[in-house]
Amino acid sequence: MKQIADMVQRSADGALLANEEGTVVLWNKAAEHLMGFRAGEVLGRPCHDVIRGMTLSGHPLCSSSCAVGQRLGCGGGVRNFDIRTRTKTGKTLWLNVSSLPVPSRKKDRFLFVHLFRDISKQAKIRQLVQELQSVLSVPDERPAPGATLSIASASSSDNLPDVPATFPLSRREREVLQHLALGERTARIADVLCISSATVRNHVQHICDKLGAHSRLEALAIAFHRGTPFA
């Protein structure tokens, strides 16, 4: 037990140790820093009452009949999962949680460890990407048969969103990013800017590299979300 407690205390991640009843018996310094609760405010309380976890969509997850605790009680492991919670001051926090059972020599007695780390930035980006996917998945309006579509009118500079001036992008990269924000595909952007599709793809790759994004949608989430690290 002492060895487990020492390991939990030294963990760089937030960590708690709870008994088979779900009562917190150890709360480390990283957890204090992350959640804002001191050990004296947590020890002896039910785990679910401290963490107060919800799903990322806001549905209650932690409770006295916790499915995670039941699985740990049977000696089974639990894959890491993401939750939404609040700190002592009420700040919303997204956590990735890993849980492990700690067997005891006594029958029907056990401990379990919750290790949790802050994933708030990643969760916010993921949420923005999902919102953008929802918006960009709306089918494009197609012109009636026989109608003509002017490239100039469809991609008027008046309709293009502003790219923050602090972004380390070239003029052409800014133009490509603006057209991506309108939901335009590679071929369409190539036509509007009078460049090849391969050149458009190269610009998109450069944009992602400079913004630290892994996809077009993530680049859009970073570029047109207030609080960007470049602002």
Score class of each variant (00 low, 15 high):
49 D>P: 10
62 C>A: 08
24 V>D: 09
48 H>P: 08
91 K>R: 13
33 H>L: 03
127 Q>T: 08
121 K>A: 14
74 C>F: 12
126 R>K: 05
81 F>W: 04
59 H>P: 00
103 P>G: 10
66 C>W: 03
97 V>L: 02
52 R>N: 10
89 T>C: 00
126 R>S: 03
112 F>M: 07
110 F>R: 12
134 S>C: 09
97 V>P: 08
75 G>H: 12
35 M>Y: 00
27 W>D: 04
127 Q>E: 15
131 E>D: 15
122 Q>L: 06
27 W>F: 13
48 H>V: 01
89 T>D: 05
24 V>M: 02
32 E>D: 00
106 K>Q: 15
41 E>V: 00
36 G>E: 01
117 R>D: 10
35 M>S: 00
49 D>V: 07
106 K>P: 08
91 K>W: 01
86 R>K: 11
122 Q>T: 00
103 P>D: 09
45 R>V: 07
115 L>I: 05
84 R>A: 13
86 R>Q: 08
70 Q>N: 05
56 L>R: 10
82 D>G: 00
135 V>Y: 11
37 F>C: 00
86 R>F: 06
68 V>N: 02
130 Q>I: 11
64 S>Q: 10
107 K>M: 12
122 Q>R: 11
70 Q>S: 02
121 K>V: 08
50 V>C: 02
63 S>E: 10
116 F>A: 07
66 C>M: 03
93 L>M: 05
125 I>Y: 06
25 V>T: 15
60 P>Q: 14
108 D>I: 14
66 C>Q: 04
42 V>H: 00
36 G>T: 01
